[in-house]
Nucleic acid binder design. Structure first.
Length: 449
DNA sequence: TGAAATGTTGGGGCG
DNA sequence: ACGCCCCAACATTTC
């Protein structure tokens, strides 16, 4: 009598370098893949709209590839603490494997499940797969978590290097009978009325296969000049791997090893992976990262009453500042924004519009295909000055200067906000010098706190 | 992974 | 030849 192994896919929608899947293969019983759409467990943050679109397509491909290899992907919806044990029983599974998560609520759910399943005599194992250095393994000399990037990353580099990625399994043992699966289309992850996803379809092809292709292309064509060209939003020199990491279509280990074994100078690129690691390190030690100031002195920041018209103008890319508007429209249309422009638009929201960073974080959460629970709030707090190793508050980007420096020929602005190219036609919603001064005055309150 | 204000320096025009 | 001034270019400080 076979006792199948369940592989619970979460933020690791891949077959290659997937230690949970590997453990199931090694156990040598039939394998059933599972994905749970959990919008009910307490504290789990509902996915944003762009994320749901990506998830749909990535799951579609994962399911197809599992079937090609002989296995299956079972989709279920509901609180994991209820749905997973029921599924284990229904399938007569003897083992459950997953790759670890590091958010506060997720850790609670997973720890609870480990306990209840084991109490039922089910073998449960979890694995490190989504970060290179698990948060608790990196400690200062004093045993505390790191608060500054450079020493954090130096300490990581002193640890044993990330393991070699595991090869994709050739074949998976077919289960005799599959538990029933929800139909992916019934989950309603893809927008229909209205269908606003045209720009996403045009720009992205979710899934592990396209992810690997982009990694290879990046290392072959763009990595050589990455350190210089990554700052130019029109250049197309960035890796575009962030959504692949968000959904685990690529593991950081696979990226790491592909990068270090390429001929290109990859130090700068690897340190971007380092910032991602640092964000997860911080989130692990400060689970309220998305809602609370990491530096509590910022609790005293005198945010003015929310100005909804200004927030809306920022969201829609109608601020009258071309680089800001181009960035916000790139985001809205394609689910993505170039990193430098993220800094500029975020600085503009927080320091020129004096709108709480949480409002910006929520908008990015809803519109980015790559927003994850760590990087998104981490980076917003970095810009706002309230975060870990944050930009000093008084570091205020001037969107006009930034455009001159990094988009001198206006290629980026022309691409995303062609109507903003002509300077004369625009009416800025706020004055840069004036609002800058107001922001600095507000910051004085934090300094005194 | 800033920008603006302020300070310093040095070449050149000019009396 | 010299001092003076201007000002661009660069450096430093401040926010």
């Amino acid at each position: 009598m076979p006792s199948p192994s369940l592989v619970w896919f979460r933020d690791d929608l891949r077959l290659a370098d997937n230690p949970a899947l590997r453990a199931a293969v090694d156990r040598d019983e039939p394998i059933i893949g599972v994905y749970l759409l959990d919008e009910e467990s307490p504290g789990i943050r509902p996915l944003g709209g762009a994320a749901r679109w990506w998830l749909h397509h990535s799951l579609a491909e994962l399911g197809e590839r599992l079937r090609e290899k002989g296995s299956a992907l079972v989709l279920r919806r509901g609180a994991a603490a209820d749905v997973l044990p029921a599924l284990v029983q229904e399938a007569g599974a003897g083992a459950v494997y997953w790759n670890r998560r590091y958010g506060g609520a997720e850790r609670g759910v997973d720890a609870g499940l480990k306990e209840t399943l084991r109490a039922d005599g089910i073998e449960v194992s979890s694995f490190a797969a989504s970060v290179l250095f698990e948060p608790w393994t990196v400690r200062t000399g004093a045993g505390t978590p790191y608060g500054v990037f450079t020493p954090f990353w130096n300490a990581c580099r002193q640890l044993p290097p990330p393991r070699e990625p595991l090869p994709e399994p050739r074949e998976l043992r077919r289960p005799g009978r599959h538990p029933a699966s929800d139909a992916l289309d019934d989950w309603g992850l893809v927008p229909t009325a209205p269908d606003w996803a045209a720009g996403l379809r045009e720009r992205w092809q979710p899934g592990e296969v396209a992810a690997r292709a982009r990694l290879d292309e990046f290392l072959r064509e763009d990595a050589a000049d990455y350190d210089r060209a990554r700052d130019e939003p029109a250049g197309g020199a960035t890796s575009l791997l962030s959504p692949r990491l968000r959904w685990g279509e690529l593991s950081p280990h696979a990226i790491w090893h592909a990068a270090v074994s390429s001929d290109a100078p990859v130090g700068g690129f690897l340190s971007e992976l380092g910032w991602r690691e640092f964000a997860w390190h911080i989130l692990f030690h400060f689970p309220e990262l998305a809602t609370k100031n990491l530096r509590s002195a910022f609790d005293a920041f005198p945010w003015p009453r929310l100005h909804p018209t200004r927030l809306r103008a920022w969201q829609r890319g109608e601020t009258g500042y071309p680089l800001v508007d181009a960035g916000m429209r790139e985001l809205w249309r394609s689910g993505y924004m170039h990193n430098r422009v993220r800094m500029v638009t975020a600085s503009f929201l927080v320091k020129n519009l004096l709108i709480d960073w949480r409002r910006g974080e929520e908008w990015f959460w809803d519109t980015l295909v790559d927003a994850d629970a760590a990087s998104n709030p981490f980076n917003w707090q970095w810009v706002a000055g309230s975060g870990a190793d944050a930009a000093p508050y008084f570091r205020i980007f001037n969107p006009e200067l930034q455009a001159k420096k990094f988009d001198p020929d206006r290629r980026y602005i022309r691409e995303w906000a062609p109507d903003a190219v002509d300077d004369d036609a625009r009416e800025p919603i706020v004055d840069l010098a004036e609002t800058r001064k107001a922001a600095l005055a507000a910051y004085e309150v934090v300094k005194r706190a």
